[in-house]
Amino acid sequence: MSRYTILLGGELVRTPALERQIAGTRIIAADSGIGHAEALDIVPELWVGDFDSAPQMLPERLKAVPKREFPSDKDRTDGELAVDIALEQGASALVLAGAFGGARADHSFLHMTLALRLAEMGIDVILTSGAQEGRPLPHAPVEFDYAEGTLFSVLGFSELAGLTVTGAKWPLDAVTVPFGSSLTMSNEVLKSNATGGRLRIDLARGRALLVAHPLTGKDG
């Protein structure tokens, strides 16, 4: 599996979970995302964008990163361009680091919908800020090993049908969730012998993203 990390311009904090996720991956920075490289003590192999929001002060080792420059008048964001380049190079798994927060809520929304589209293409995708992470939900049972008390939400990008959630404070059993409902917001992981200590989610139909906050768990 060829794994890439895309450094985006949103919020990013260095955490043990983030370090594990990006370890051994190939790194591409998207415009202002290069600023995260210094905090993570990494050097990207490529820096992509129109560089209209690039940091003014960078160490020499980051200034020397090879660049692929695009015009400012373009029909894709710098982040999407970086993703496309990773896919062209054979990426089968992506960590979108810095996908949440920042000054542009529209960019955060794009990153979430982009992750859903990539997942439908068969690409393994994680969105992360270090403190929170998002994972597209497949139409098959999937388990997550989060600590007791970890806050999580299931964000629906359509009506959801046949949604079952176990290993949670508020379980659900094959429910239909209307688009725009808050039913699946602010749940908590609840360890139990019945679930083997894991959060388990099964979605029959619809597009959804699990957003979890690992630092809120008892081991966070």
Results as ranks from 00 to 15, higher is better:
L114W: 11
V95F: 05
L96R: 14
A105S: 13
L127Q: 02
P16E: 07
D124N: 13
P44E: 00
E19F: 07
I42Q: 09
A54E: 00
A23W: 04
F100W: 08
E45R: 06
L18P: 13
R117Y: 10
Q89F: 06
E19I: 15
I42D: 00
T15M: 03
R76F: 06
E69I: 11
A105W: 12
L116Q: 09
I123T: 06
P66F: 00
A119H: 05
D78M: 03
P66M: 00
G10E: 07
T15C: 04
S92P: 01
V125C: 08
G35I: 05
G33L: 03
R14W: 06
W47S: 09
D52Y: 01
L96C: 11
P44N: 03
G122V: 11
L114F: 12
D50I: 04
L8C: 07
A97H: 12
R135G: 02
T113C: 05
D50H: 03
G33N: 09
R68I: 11
L7H: 02
S32Y: 01
P16Q: 07
I34C: 00
G98K: 14
L81V: 15
E120I: 11
S72R: 15
H36E: 01
K74I: 05
I28L: 07
I27H: 08
L40R: 14
D78S: 03
D50V: 03
R76P: 00
G35Q: 04
L118A: 14
S53T: 11
Q132H: 13
P55Y: 12
A17K: 15
E120H: 10
E11H: 14
R26L: 04
A82E: 01
L137A: 11
P55V: 12
I34D: 00
R14P: 08
L116G: 08
L12A: 04
V65Y: 02
D52P: 01
L96V: 15
R68W: 01
R14L: 09
A115M: 14
P59M: 06
M57L: 10
G10Y: 04
A64K: 14
T15S: 07
A82S: 06
F109M: 15
G98V: 14
W47R: 06
A37C: 07
H111W: 05
K67Q: 15
P66I: 00
A30E: 02
R76Y: 07
P136F: 05
G90I: 01
T113P: 01
E45A: 11
